[in-house]
Structures are given as C-alpha cells and as structure tokens.
C-alpha cells in the first residue's frame, strides 16, 4: 500500500521537475533567428506561410538574437560569416538550440574544396539537429523542427551545455580556422 504521507523531495528532484515544466514551454514555443547565409533559406518562406504554417507548432520569426531560442543556419558559411555567427550565437539567451540546414553545414557539400567556406559546422558551434539535403525540401525542414522538439522533450538537445563544458575544444577549432575570433573591420574599430 502506498503511503499518503508527504515526503519532501530532494533539491535535485525539485530542480528536475521545474526543468521538465520549462521544457514543455520551451518546446512548444520555439522562436527562430534566421541566419540566412545560403540557398536553403528559400525553404523557410513556404514553411512559415500558409503552405506548411509553422506557427501551429508555436514557432515564429524573431528580430534579434536576444529574443530567439533557436538559430537556423541555412547553408554554407564563409570564414567572415562564421565570425559573425559565433558572435550571434553567444548573444542568445540560454537555453538555445541550433538547426543546421543542407549538406553544406554537414560536410561542406558542393563547396567542400573552397578556400573560403568551412566544412563542418559542429566543430565550431554545437549543432542540435541537422537537416540533410541540397536543398532539403520543406517536409524535411518541418520534420527537423519536430525532431528538435522531441530532443528537447527527451533532454537530448544539450548543445548549449556542451558549449560550456567543452569550450576549450570549440575555441581551439575556431582559432584553427579563423586565426582570431574577434572581428576587426571598419565598423568594429
């Protein structure tokens, strides 16, 4: 017979419960920041408008990195763009997620031998979900978003924690490719 007496939960257990409640809200209201670097960005308008309507999943576009939850990297990243992307990613408020679109973010795609374009995005910033294809069609994009929601539900979307824990590794990779991560141009002097 189960006891009906109130037994106090430990602190870890209370934190876990709160985190699960937070996860319910977070996965049902994903606000996107679209970093439209490449051609995969053209898959987002049909996903947002009346054809696939991602607002029914609670997703919507946001204007600034501070407000957004999920960063969409749509396509190839040149070195110059990667610097700005790292700035953008570090400005977002936690918990934050990244979705990489297209084969360019996975292995370089058709730009695998270019001098200006990086090959593997998840060496530089932690990517939670990849949507493969060149370009992925809109069903695949929507499926990627649903996958991200499942990952959040199963507590596997831990890229942002990984970025804290293995920051030295990420920073070493960023420095190997970029030289220096800080932006030095006419507008940042």
């Amino acid at each position: 017979m189960l006891s009906t007496k109130f037994s106090p939960m430990s602190k870890e257990e209370v934190d876990r419960k709160w985190w699960e409640i937070g996860d319910f809200f977070r996965r049902n209201s994903l606000w996107m920041l679209m970093y439209c670097t490449g051609c995969c960005a053209i898959e987002l308008p049909p996903a947002m408008t009346s054809a696939y309507d991602m607002e029914r999943l609670g997703m919507g576009p946001m204007a600034t990195p501070r407000q957004a939850d999920v960063l969409l990297v749509t396509g190839y990243l040149s070195l110059k763009t990667l610097r700005r992307l790292i700035y953008t990613y570090e400005q977002m408020s936690e918990p934050k997620y990244i979705v990489g679109f297209g084969s360019c973010t996975i292995n370089g795609g058709i730009y695998h031998d270019s001098h200006a374009v990086i090959n593997q995005l998840n060496k530089y910033i932690p990517v939670d979900v990849f949507v493969a294809g060149c370009m992925p069609n809109t069903e695949a994009v929507m499926n990627g978003f649903v996958d991200l929601m499942d990952l959040i539900k199963n507590k596997k979307a831990n890229g942002w924690k990984d970025y804290h824990e293995r920051y030295e590794w990420y920073l070493a990779n960023q420095k190997a490719a970029l030289g220096e991560v800080r932006v030095h141009d006419e507008f940042h002097e």
Partner: peptide
C-alpha cells in the same frame, strides 16, 4: 489562410 497556433500560445510564450 493558415491554421494558426493553439489559443493558449501566448501563455506558452
């Protein structure tokens, strides 16, 4: 011509 979010979406946000 879209389906639209749940009616309690604003609370979730």
């Amino acid at each position: 011509k879209r389906y639209g979010p749940k009616w309690y979406q604003e609370f979730l946000d």
